[in-house]
Design a protein around this nucleic acid. Structure first.
Length: 282
DNA sequence: CTTCTTGTTACTGA
DNA sequence: ATCAGTAACAAGAA
């Protein structure tokens, strides 16, 4: 599931590859995955690639932006002309065979490169909007966890107002953006705080620990290129990320807690799988 | 066959 | 009015 680190990893690579290029053709293979008139961005130079929360935006010279949310199973994979023609040394061979049955949109660039939007579950989307419509996308979205505006004082203020379990609160985009299930579980383990604690019951020191833990975990995951779990998220070149080898508790039911060696347990919180250590996470 | 999976939003109920 | 809980979305795995 792409969260902030996965989306940031994709954005950095796509910015390097795509800025200044022009799209020559858009093939929409699933109508519900694309919103807008794709003809409007043909032969227009791409000027910038950005990320905010879990959304990536591709800006074009004609004041249009292609925004995308990958939801749980979206992938963005770029294959250059050399690899497509059977040459080069692709780091993962299967990308030569795209499009696949899960490819929803295919972008052909003027230099022969191809960008594939794959999405098994079709929850993800790509949408063409005007520059002046970008702000309203984030109207109800708080700053990213890696933004300096998310600090202990801010979170103390926001969290003291709700009795919801702390894990649900830190996954709430209107409080802070970019922390999904994987990094919420791992951050709470690093901070030694139980995911079920009412948010308002955390004292200043605990919130400070949790804030630091979330930033540490998210920065580490970005550095490692994100988490590849069930093979759903992959990098732009089709390769896995690196954080799955560093996971503390997520998906590790029965394994030993990295803090205290007690077996990790799985519970259900807000209808979502939640992994934690009942011994050291208080 | 049924059940489970998930990020986000829309809806329902308190 | 505001907050909390949950169904819905889609497609595949178990």
């Amino acid at each position: 599931m792409p969260e902030l680190p996965e989306v940031e990893t994709l954005k950095r690579k796509l910015a390097k590859i795509l800025i200044d290029k022009k799209i020559s053709q858009v093939k929409i293979l699933s109508d519900k995955s694309f919103h807008g008139d794709s003809q409007q961005i043909l032969d227009v130079p791409m000027t910038n690639v950005w990320r905010r929360a879990k959304i990536i935006g591709f800006d074009f010279a004609n004041q249009l932006t292609l925004v995308t949310h990958l939801k749980m199973t979206g992938q963005l994979i770029y294959v250059d002309e050399k690899i497509r023609l059977g040459g080069g040394h692709p780091s993962s061979d299967w990308i030569r065979n795209l499009p696949s049955s899960h490819t929803r949109i295919e972008y052909l660039f003027e230099d022969g490169g191809h960008l594939f939007f794959n999405d098994q579950r079709k929850f993800g989307w790509m949408k063409l909007i005007n520059f002046n419509e970008i702000d309203q996308l984030f109207e109800h979205v708080a700053p990213d966890i890696i933004d300096d505006r998310i600090d202990t004082n801010y979170l103390k203020e926001r969290l003291s107002r709700t009795t919801r379990p702390i894990k649900l609160a830190i996954m709430d985009n209107s409080i802070l953006a970019g922390v999904g299930n994987i990094y919420a579980c791992d951050s709470l383990n690093l901070a030694k705080i139980s995911p079920t604690r009412p948010a308002k019951s955390l004292n200043f020191t605990e919130i400070e620990r949790l804030t630091q833990a979330m930033k540490t975990i998210v920065f580490q995951a970005i550095k490692l290129g994100g988490t590849t779990f069930d093979g759903k998220y992959v990098q732009v070149d089709g390769l896995a990320g690196g954080y799955q080898d560093k996971l503390r508790v997520y998906g590790l039911e029965g394994n030993k807690c990295p803090n205290c060696q007690h077996p990790i347990e799985k519970i259900r919180l807000g209808g979502r799988g939640t992994y934690y250590c009942p011994n050291c996470q208080k």
